[in-house]
Design a protein around this nucleic acid. Structure first.
Length: 485
RNA sequence: GGGGCUGUGGGGUAGCCUGGUAGCCUUAGAGGUUUGGGACCUCUCGACCCCGGUUCAAAUCCGGGCAGCCCCA
């Protein structure tokens, strides 16, 4: 066995140093390039971009199935729009990139989020309850001058997301939308990308600037820290009032629109996909979103080269007909072993090895990325790979579920909270309040224990039995405390 | 927000303390030989983060900037 050279393969084990592993794998697997050198901004390379494209496709299909229509809005927002809703601008002011010196009278901001352009359009597009619900979305790059340390894909000053902006005729309908958004996260992020999450109704002090309430999706990273994935917000009538976006309701009365917003940050979800599924050999990309689902590595000598490459192309055509994305790595300069390592690093779910032995038996050798097992398969059975792909994704999802599910610990004693969250788990505790009265206790959690009050479960009504774990007053909520990114 | 560390060819590094010739591994390019788990040989290209200061002389010392990483809040 030859020594692995430093620039080949990964030098860090995921369990030993997740942070370094992540930095190394995203560059070596050619997801991103970090060398351009603009703080908080990254270059996403083709392999990463293709995965993101596939993630978008699943997400947009689901959104469209649920009645959302695509739009594209300007990347800049006039100052007067952005400042219209007072809480909104108060929350976002420190994070706004202002464009200077453009020689116009209008002051413009790079959009941090687009409520303040959708709502004025709602005002124009919606006249009556018959125009509702109006469910729109866009793919967008958004910009936030984050004051915390930036991390590639995890926390950037620019990120790629979908933002849904929906308008309804009643609060009930809007609240149903919030639940539907949580369902979309479940159907796409969990079921398809394999990332489990906890839908957390955020405490009053941690909601989206301008929202009535916010539900964020908390996901565990391998180091036990939480990362917020899609969040959905009940805006209520706050934005519609700020922009005078009214409609005639069923009782022929003028009423302000009820709006919601949902924001899955696909570039950040990719960080979870990489972190959750990857191993010491590199990435493991779910079959459903991998740009190459099956890579074919032909093994040939000068003598049988043409015959084997021809067969490899045939197999590729069979797979394409079965709707399996495949690629023949016919590079004559590289030996098979090197190709194996590179495609494993990139996380391709299946590899077909095809040489003289296989052709003689009319079969292929199939390597499976997550189990690292090699099996023989008859060429006539290649269509099975589709089904094996579904099983592949199921295995990834179940492994992630197991990791995530076992990390909730009930805790009645404030002395134990720090220990729990430092071991990479979430503490479930009784808490006095998630309204203003709870701020003091939340600050204690932050300063003394280094944790965050993430909120209450949004899909389950948990009733506290006992007193607040911090102040000892009667508890009104069951909240979850963890460390976050 | 506070503190620490770091920046040398595409990647990884030596040299920095004690100022004076930029060394090594790898990749890349050309040619040859090879191809069942990161082959080998020959030749070639390629670098001191930026700005300023000290000095006869700066990768090295000093100041500032930019960027990256880590820890704490």
């Amino acid at each position: 066995m030859k020594e692995t050279k430093s620039e080949e393969g990964l030098t860090v084990k995921k369990d030993e140093n997740f942070s370094d592993w992540f930095s190394e794998v995203i560059e070596k697997a050619e997801i991103v390039d970090l060398r351009l050198g603009i703080k908080g901004f990254i270059v996403i390379r083709p392999w990463g971009a293709q995965i993101i494209e596939n993630m978008f496709e699943h997400l947009e299909n689901e959104l469209q199935r649920k009645g959302h229509k695509p739009t594209f809005m300007p990347s800049v927002i006039p100052k007067e729009n952005l400042t219209k809703e007072s809480e909104h601008i108060k929350g976002f002011t420190p994070e706004v990139f202002w464009l200077k010196g453009i020689g116009e009278n209008q002051e413009l901001a790079l959009r941090p989020t687009s409520e303040t352009v959708y709502t004025p359009m709602f005002k124009l597009w919606v006249r009556s309850w018959r125009d509702l619900p109006l469910k729109l979305y866009q793919r967008a790059h958004v910009f936030r001058l984050d004051t915390k340390a930036t991390r590639p894909l995890i926390r950037g000053r620019e990120f790629i997301w979908i933002e849904c902006h929906d308008a309804f005729e009643s609060k009930e309908d809007a609240e149903k939308q919030v639940q539907e958004d949580i369902d979309t996260t479940e159907k796409v992020m969990h079921q398809i990308y394999g990332i489990p999450f906890f839908p957390m109704k955020r405490p009053e002090w941690d909601k989206f600037a301008g929202a009535e309430y916010t539900v964020g999706s908390d996901c565990f990273m391998p180091d036990g820290k939480l990362i917020q994935q899609p969040s959905t917000h009940l805006m209520g009538q706050k934005f519609s009032k700020a922009f005078s976006a009214k409609f005639k309701n069923r009782n022929e009365k003028e009423e302000y629109l009820w709006t919601t917003a949902y924001g899955p940050a696909v570039s950040r979800i990719l960080a979870s996909v990489i972190a959750t599924h990857g191993d010491d050999s590199g990435l493991i990309i779910p079959f459903s979103i991998s740009p190459v689902q099956t890579v074919i590595v032909p093994i040939f000598t000068a003598k049988n080269k043409n015959e084997i490459l021809k067969k490899a192309e045939e197999i590729k055509n069979i797979l394409e007909k079965k709707d399996i994305k495949s690629y023949v790595d016919a590079d004559p300069e590289k030996r098979p072993g090197e190709k194996y390592h590179v495609w494993e690093l990139k996380g391709v779910p299946f590899r077909i090895e095809l040489g003289e032995k296989e052709i003689k038996e009319n079969e292929i050798t199939l390597f499976t990325r997550d189990t690292k097992k090699k099996d023989k398969m008859k060429i006539s059975e290649l269509g099975e790979i589709k089904k094996l792909g579904e099983e592949f994704d199921k295995r990834l999802r179940e492994k992630a579920d197991k990791f995530s599910g076992g990390r909730i610990v009930d805790c009645n004693d404030r002395k134990n909270i720090k220990k729990i969250i430092e071991s990479g788990k979430m503490a479930r505790v009784n808490f006095c309040s998630t309204e203003k009265e709870g701020v003091k206790c939340a600050e204690i959690v932050e300063t003394e224990m280094g944790g965050d009050v993430r909120g209450t479960l949004a899909n389950k009504n948990e009733i506290p039995k006992g007193n607040c774990v911090i102040c000892g007053k009667t508890a009104s909520k069951v909240v979850y405390i963890g460390k976050s990114y």
